[in-house]
Amino acid sequence: MTEQRGRRIRAVVVDDEALSRALILEYLAAHPDVEVVGECANGFEAVRAITELGPDLLFLDVQMPKLDGFEVLELVGGNIDVIFVTAYDSYALRAFEVHAVDYLLKPFGAERFGAALDEARGRLARAEQVPVAQVAASARPRGGHRERILIRAGAKVEVIPVGRIDYVLARDDYVGVMVGGRELLKQQTLADLEGQLDPERFVRIHRSAILNLDRLARLELATRQSYVAVLKDGTELAVSRAGYARLNELL
């Protein structure tokens, strides 16, 4: 066991099963340098706890109500060390892509748990950080398109099924996701989001806009050279020449 450092490690335990959380707490009792500052039973609680408490270490289940473990990580960014705790070995690859400290397979013993904790101590001592973009990218299932996007405002999380998105606009470092007249800001580039959405349903019609094809009513000639997309709710969006070509291909 490593020497106790000046500051205790602040940990949050996230697992939807009370018994499983209790086991982790029990194992942690043998490690006085770790202080459990939060216990969460679902993804929303986890995001809130992590945002509000800013822990150093996360024990994270993968399959949970509301948000899965990877989605939680995507929302809270990368500056936290994670030990995954799950019965499924199939997430291991994705876990290490988000630079997980360790991957504990249920059931696990105190020794194995201690080894994972030692690894976390080492990382915290070296103050290693995980790049945020990498975490966000690997939160998406491999090869598939996103079925929902997650938007966090403070500790509050919104889960938006992609079918509810009308269009998305570029807003400097953010994207503005338009959902039924509301604009939700998400820290991501438009190109990045474009890559995550199904290209059969979402089209980059302009350098600064992605359109949900379902919302398109018609295309109108704006000037001799340029078009505007008129949506079913009357909204007009500029269409670039490349965007027009992409639309033509799909329609």
Partner: peptide, 17 residues
């Protein structure tokens, strides 16, 4: 099989409490 792993995790947690 994950049913078994999860059950064993529960047993493991219950043994002390």
């Amino acid at each position: 099989p994950h049913f078994l792993f999860n059950s064993l995790q529960s047993i493991s947690a219950l043994t002390s409490s």
